[in-house]
Amino acid sequence: MSFVEYGDTIKDGDTAIVFLGHESMFPVKVQHGTVTQTKYGVIRHSMDLIGKKYGSKVTCSKGGWVFILHPTPELWTMNLPHRTQILYSTDISIITMMLELKPGSIVCESGTGSGSLSHALIRTVAPTGHLYTVEFHQQRAEKAREEFREHGVEHLVTVTNQDVCKNGFGVSNIADAVFLDIPSPWEAIGHAKSALKAEGGRICSFSPCIEQVQRTCLAMEEYGFTEINTLEILLRVYNVRTISLQIPDLGKAAEDNSSAGFDSSNPSNQGSPCANLQQGTVQFKSGVPLREMVGHTGYLTFATKSLF
């Protein structure tokens, strides 16, 4: 297993995803002799996991079962330990496309944060590209390095612990793309520009607040970036449901009765028009939006460093 290559069977040292049910899962480090507790009972790594195919159903000690999934950057994003606010797959998707990333791309990122985007970036630029990621918080930088090692991608990434606004990315004229997710991105635009290749490249800045975007756009313009474009992307998830709606009783069935002239003042007969009506229902499938959805993650500002 690695985050940049599928493996068929679960191996000692792998990071696997234990899938318990709808949006309920967690990552587990596979280790000989270890056991993992779930609500369905215990999973014994040596017996239940190692050597099994990814995607297998594993029966836990209490008889319930789970699926063991091969990790992907997207599953990791849903399950990683949060050290900071993280970027989710919806934003990551558009960032990756708009930065024009592909195998071989050199990308700079700051901050590393919880590594959610980092894993996705590494996946896309592998096997010949590289990610330079800068994190000013020492603990976080250290933890990210550890995760990259565990996930078999350390050769594709360099983690630097410094302040990108003061010290930049530590590289110059080699990046195809730069991504910023820091409180004051406008202070890093100059560094971003010098990290990018001379022939140009793409930049993206993620900011939750519009004021940050305004300053960042001004800075981008100042540094000669073109195609400055701010956008927002929201995911609307639909639950698939079978709905059944009642057909209202407009009295068609009751017409015969009404001519029979029951006196409604007779209490025993009061319910009768309702009783003999066949309340039909209509069934249909519907994609029903969730009651609450994520209403905002951040604004994404993209720009191009042009040739001149």
């Binding site: 407009l250 009295g251 009404s258 002239g261 029951f262 009061q270 319910g271």
Partner: peptide, 22 residues
Amino acid sequence: FPLSKVDSLLSGTFSTETLPSE
């Protein structure tokens, strides 16, 4: 006005003899 009386009102057979339950 009770929904269950609508059809009879439209068809002209409406009467107040059978009121819906309380």
